[in-house]
Design a protein around this nucleic acid. Sequence first.
DNA 1: TTCGGGCCTGACGTAACGTCAGGGTCAAGC
DNA 2: GCTTGACCCTGACGTTACGTCAGGCCCGAA
Lengths: 259, 259
Amino acid sequence: MRNGSANRMYRTQEFAELASVTVRALHHYDRLDLLKPRRTDAGYRLYGVRDLERLEQIVALKFLGLSLKQIKALLEREKLELSAALRMQRKVLEQRRSLLDRAIRAIREAESAVKPGRQTDAAVLKKIIEVIEMQDNTDWMLKYHTPEARQKVEARRQLWSPELQERVSKQWAGLMAEVETALGEDPAGPRVQALAERWIKLVEEFTGGDQEIAAGVRRLYADQANWPAGFQQQAKPFMNPEVWTLMQKAIAIRKASAT
Amino acid sequence: MRNGSANRMYRTQEFAELASVTVRALHHYDRLDLLKPRRTDAGYRLYGVRDLERLEQIVALKFLGLSLKQIKALLEREKLELSAALRMQRKVLEQRRSLLDRAIRAIREAESAVKPGRQTDAAVLKKIIEVIEMQDNTDWMLKYHTPEARQKVEARRQLWSPELQERVSKQWAGLMAEVETALGEDPAGPRVQALAERWIKLVEEFTGGDQEIAAGVRRLYADQANWPAGFQQQAKPFMNPEVWTLMQKAIAIRKASAT
DNA sequence: TTCGGGCCTGACGTAACGTCAGGGTCAAGC
DNA sequence: GCTTGACCCTGACGTTACGTCAGGCCCGAA
């Protein structure tokens, strides 16, 4: 009774215009249980001020590039996950921007390179491909490596014949498959320890015994553990996380018992 | 007979690895008639060197953010449309990047603003919304206007009551609907000329008689005419192009006969 | 009471594939 | 000649965030 007429209710269209979204979007959010308005007896949706606030939050997070699933997870568990999510999202966006930048640069370079004399489309395409490939070779290493590590990777790359590459990657696949069959077992048991042995060998072969590279890989996977809700599955990794943790445990045990 | 063994053929998987795409993607391009390999009697796909070249072009254009439909159109009509398409795409990408930048800035500002004392998620959200809204109000005008025109728009905006806005936009909708019913008619005929009259009135009301703003709108639509293949429908405009051209003709006639 | 406008719930379409499922093909070894 | 195992094929459904009908109910004003 405190404020009877103050909190007016809006029907769908009116509310949509108020918030600059479409009616269909409101339907959509409703079905996803993301924003569920009240209903009249006839089934009409009725939105109030609280709904407007929530919708504004949704729209804002969408603007930041979060998916509706992620937004839902964040808004539901009113924990302190938001800032963690934002930190992650910032990285995602920055990565996306660097991709965009590369594309834009490629177009610019192709445009300026083709100016003299109108060339055929095929020539333009060739130039584009060239530019992109040049960028590619230099960019992929920047991710989980320090600058010093980059040089070493580059050096190693030249030592790797395609045959060696294939052999190693096949061994990886086989080993991971085997580890999966041992998932329930004791990390200290003989079978898992044997697998850990092979694991270490492969890692050494892969990294050339370089600690920095190995650390980069480890960072990549360790990060996963404390991701906020709704982010677990996005871009699923090429390795089962359980496999990863089992191996980490086994290796830790191995090292401890090696003294 | 010239070079029997030189152009080796690859089966799907092998070819996919060679080009660093997935087998499924090759299937997909095949079904879209984007890259159709030869077939064995048994139906197996066989890719050759020409296919590799084409695939590289596809991948490159995809990297630039073109859709498969656009890529197909560009690669089919081997005209000189490619550079026009690239020019457009660059604008699209730059626009996308500015959106990304805004999102990134918003996150950064929110992160730095929240540092002192761990605040609740709600507070963080509020800050984000605030930042985004501030950016929004200043950005939308930069599109088809010169800096000088911007100020005028801003000035006009303050004169526009919401009622006036709504009235005008409804008149627009009504007028456009009427013009659509007159699409086949003679631009010099009385009915179309009457519509053109109303059109001009509305434009004046809308722009406040400002020539620069009117020119901006005109540029926006005129551009459409010489877009390259595959770009016609992307982001369909809020106005039927036929309506636009009919009105342009009618207005030209009106001006000519007004002497 | 009727009529125009708004509201409802399906249900299909979009882009670029991922991911099975069910079923042939091929080359190698027995 | 036959059996594998590896590879190939064609559907067909899942994904994301809605757009766009289609068929039918509800509501307020004249």
